[in-house]
Computed example of a mutant assay.
Amino acid sequence: MTPLQFENTYRPIWDELDQALEHLEGAPRTKKDDKGKRRVDKASKRPATRIAALYRATCEHLALARSRDYPTHLTVRLEALTERAHQAVYRAGDNSLARLGQLVLVDMPQAVRAHRLYMWTALALFGLPLVIIALLCYFDPGFVLSVQDINTVREFDAMYGPSSNPVGRTRSAGGDWSAFGFYIMNNIGIAFKCFAGGVFFGLGSLFFLAFNGAVIGAVAGYLTYKGYTQTFYSFVVTHGAFELTAIVISGAAGLAIGHALVAPRRLSRPQALRKASADAVPLMYLATAMLFIAAAIEAFWSSSRWIAPEVKYGVGGLCWVMVLAYLGWQGRPRTVEAAHAG
């Protein structure tokens, strides 16, 4: 879709939102009827639910315009319109919960879809090394020593081999809260490296995505060869839905920053960096939230041997479906026709 086609398709939605906002701001538009009398435009009398729906649709259009690098005048208009709508929708009373809901239910999944090119690239950079190294370690278990040292490999055997201890660790169950804190720090550290590496023209993000994919692949391939499949996969399946997705999202944010520095287009590099960083903020909010969820699951659920592996597989599968559905469909405008309906 060309910028002109995009604008012609969605301009009625933007005009309707603009008119409704002018009414809320105290300057309702008027139109002349067939008899020459001036009447208030009905579009400016939209209820709050209608304005919220128009706002969500316009946010989606802004994300698309940014991702497709449409002309500046178009993105500037949409930015101004969404900013006005945001203030109108959330200006009354204590709106912290409403803003949080907007961020979680609309802004974050829309940001993921707006960065879908970077998401797919990050997934490939992370997933391909993971699969390749996993296969190499499975067919040649000695290859794991090319990625991990011998002491770490022995720890894998102790953590995932036959034992009465909680799976995935050598500590006691009383250390769950300590483990929770450790997992948060460790996971956020990985995500931050994948994101911050973008300032090196994307090369840092590329490296950390591939490196972490290789490390995880080495563990998976080696433990699969050893026959510890039930303990290992039942341990990682649930929190992996959030942790692995968060790593990919962080890497995608870093790649977006790197691309802005490599190809700033009509902006200076500092301007391109600021814009890309601002667009990536919802991605990092989402990645951070997912890592907290992953840490809690890993500390209190994944490591528990009293939970049957079949239950963990079922819950893990449900978590993967929920994560993918959230990223793919949450926060979408219903349809263009619905946005035109009065």
Rank of each mutant, 00 (worst) to 15 (best):
A272T: 01
R269F: 05
F139P: 10
Q148C: 07
M290A: 09
S146H: 13
A299T: 02
V262W: 13
K275N: 09
W306I: 09
G217V: 09
Y160I: 00
R265L: 11
F242R: 04
C319T: 05
V144K: 00
T58H: 01
R274T: 03
Q271F: 04
P47A: 01
F207D: 01
Q110I: 08
A65T: 04
R66N: 11
S96T: 15
A246F: 05
A218K: 09
G101I: 03
R56F: 06
N165L: 09
V131D: 12
L130M: 15
Q230R: 07
V112I: 15
S277F: 11
F292K: 09
E243D: 02
V336I: 12
G342V: 03
G342T: 09
A278L: 13
A339K: 05
K31F: 08
K35Y: 09
A63V: 10
F182A: 08
G198M: 04
T9S: 07
G227Q: 11
A196Q: 12
A256M: 07
G101M: 08
A287F: 04
G328V: 00
G258V: 04
I249C: 04
G198H: 08
F208Y: 07
F211E: 11
Y70C: 02
D157I: 10
V262H: 12
G174K: 10
N151P: 07
Y10N: 03
L123D: 09
T238D: 02
P109Y: 07
M284Q: 07
M284N: 02
G331A: 15
A48M: 14
V236T: 05
Q5N: 08
R84F: 00
N95E: 06
G227P: 11
G174S: 06
L24M: 06
A218L: 08
A63P: 02
D15H: 08
G204K: 02
D140N: 11
L283F: 10
V315P: 00
D149F: 10
L223Y: 05
A214F: 08
A260P: 00
F192I: 06
S164Y: 11
L206F: 14
A111Y: 04
K45F: 01
A88V: 05
T335S: 15
P166V: 05
H239F: 02
P71W: 06
L318A: 12
L4P: 10
N95S: 15
E60T: 05
A88D: 00
H115W: 06
L62D: 00
R266F: 12
L54W: 00
G189M: 11
Q330Y: 13
S205K: 08
L17F: 00
F235Y: 14
R332C: 13
Q87K: 06
